[in-house]
Structures are given as C-alpha cells and as structure tokens.
Amino acid sequence: MTDILDKALGAARDAAGTAAEIILHYWRAGVDVIVKGDDTPVTVADREAELAIRGILSAALPEAGIYGEEYGADDTSREYLWLVDPLDGTKSFVRRTPFFSTQIALMHRGELVLGVSSAPVYGERMWAVRGRGAYFDGERVQVASTAAMRDASISTGNVKTLTGDARWNALGAMIRDSNRIRGYGDFCHYHLLARGGLDLVVESDVSILDVAALAVIVREAGGVFTDIHGGAPTLESRSVLAGTPAIHAEALARLTGATIDR
C-alpha cells in the first residue's frame, strides 16, 4: 500500500497544481455562472478543473473510482475511491471572495487515507497521508496544545441547521466561555486549525467532498475530526466538529448533551 499512496500523493498534488492554473485563469478573466438544480452555482472553472483532475488521477491510479462534485461517482464500491471538489467555495469564487480551494482525498475501504487542499489565490497547499503527518508547503505542522475552553479560538462555517435546535444554545455557551470567535469558513479555518492558529471548527451543513481532504490533514496534524455527533467521516457526513483533542472532547460533550427539539 505504501507504493500506492506514494503514487497517489504525487498525482493528487499534480492535479491540484493543474486545477490551480485553470481556476486562476478564470478568476482573472471572469466567468458566467450557472445555477444547478439544487440552487447552487457552478462555473466553467469548476467543470474544467474537475475534468483535468480526473484525467490525472485516473492515469495514476486506474483501479480507483472517482466521486466528484460536478460529474458524480463512477464507482463508489472500489477498494480505492477518490473524492474531488475541484472548486470548493464556488459562491465565494463568483462573488470575488478568495475563500475557495481544490479538495482531493483518497479513501481506502471507506477510510480516508490521503488529502490535498490547495488554495490557489493564497498560494497555500496542505497535504497529508495517514501515518505520515501533515504538511503546509513542505513544512510539517501540528495543532495547538490548547486544553481549556477559556483559551480556545473557535471558528464556525455554515451552521444554519444548528440554529434550529438546542445545540445552538450549547454553541453559544461555548462561544461565551471561549477566548474568541471567528468565522473563517471553507478551507481557511481547517488550514489554521492544522497549523495551530485555531482550536475548534464547527459546521453543520457541508458535503463530504468539501472536507474529506481536510479531515486527513487535521488528523495527521494531531487534531480530532468527526461529525457533530462524534462519528468518523463517511460519504454521508454532513457536519464537522474538528479541534485540538481536549477542546474537541469538551465541545462534543456539550453539543451531544444538548436536548434536540424534534
């Protein structure tokens, strides 16, 4: 498996670089926006980037399936499965806000084992392979050692669903007890968490394609990455609770201890 992961990491990094060139071209030139059936936007940048990524990944690891944001899944039952969001943060992209990225992850028998996260406007790239640590532009990174909520920096992303039940009050209490609250969103707060700049990320409305690569990166940086119920990420995951080990444990206890109104 080591040889496969070496080959896969090289391909994923190459694919992220190729996608960055495509995305930056359209970032400078501008694009028309199409609204998909689920009322989310898509552009030619999304679609061209995914096709380019698929070509590189398929050539490097033909035995793997690919599940992509724009072109769906060809086979999710294979031993290896690529998860690809070519332009995560399209809403930011079309509004000229640079909080978007390319996310490429690899699953092996349902477990996330590799992740590459590329933010082309920022020139940032992070990657990780199971058991090998997490890296930011070639330098190994580690989450902070923060252990007390009073010292914690919390960042929220999309938390619309969370506002509908008692967990919203639990989150509010954590914010009151924390050191500070931010809302970086998208790739940005996960990169900061893995590099020690944040201590907790909470999101209740995501796709696994948005966060699969970031899950590997945060875990390999020494953090804990689950859904908001404490479960490991799966293809069906729709929420995230990620943080330093101590802060994640306290946040999970607070959120799961809240009574959810039905």
Score class of each variant (00 low, 15 high):
24 L>N: 11
220 E>P: 01
53 I>N: 14
184 Y>C: 06
94 V>Q: 14
257 G>S: 00
216 V>M: 03
28 R>Y: 10
252 L>D: 00
147 A>C: 02
12 A>C: 00
183 G>Q: 15
33 V>M: 09
39 D>C: 10
186 D>L: 12
114 L>A: 07
83 L>S: 15
95 R>D: 09
45 A>N: 07
25 H>N: 13
111 E>R: 12
236 E>D: 07
69 E>S: 13
101 S>N: 11
58 S>K: 15
167 R>L: 07
2 T>N: 04
74 D>M: 07
145 S>T: 07
35 V>P: 09
232 A>I: 04
107 M>P: 14
195 R>S: 06
18 T>Q: 13
229 H>C: 08
106 L>P: 10
41 P>G: 07
33 V>L: 09
261 D>C: 07
221 A>D: 00
245 P>K: 02
132 R>T: 03
50 E>D: 07
118 S>L: 05
213 A>N: 05
75 D>H: 14
54 R>F: 09
179 N>L: 13
197 G>K: 14
84 V>N: 12
199 D>M: 01
55 G>W: 10
120 P>Q: 08
202 V>D: 02
182 R>A: 15
259 T>C: 05
203 E>S: 12
152 A>G: 04
29 A>H: 09
233 P>N: 03
47 R>Y: 13
68 G>L: 13
106 L>C: 11
244 T>A: 02
171 L>P: 07
33 V>K: 13
61 L>H: 08
119 A>M: 14
36 K>E: 07
206 V>E: 04
49 A>H: 07
145 S>A: 09
154 I>V: 03
42 V>E: 15
234 T>K: 06
107 M>N: 12
234 T>R: 13
153 S>I: 08
137 D>R: 15
118 S>K: 14
168 W>A: 12
83 L>F: 14
89 G>I: 15
161 T>A: 12
254 R>Q: 03
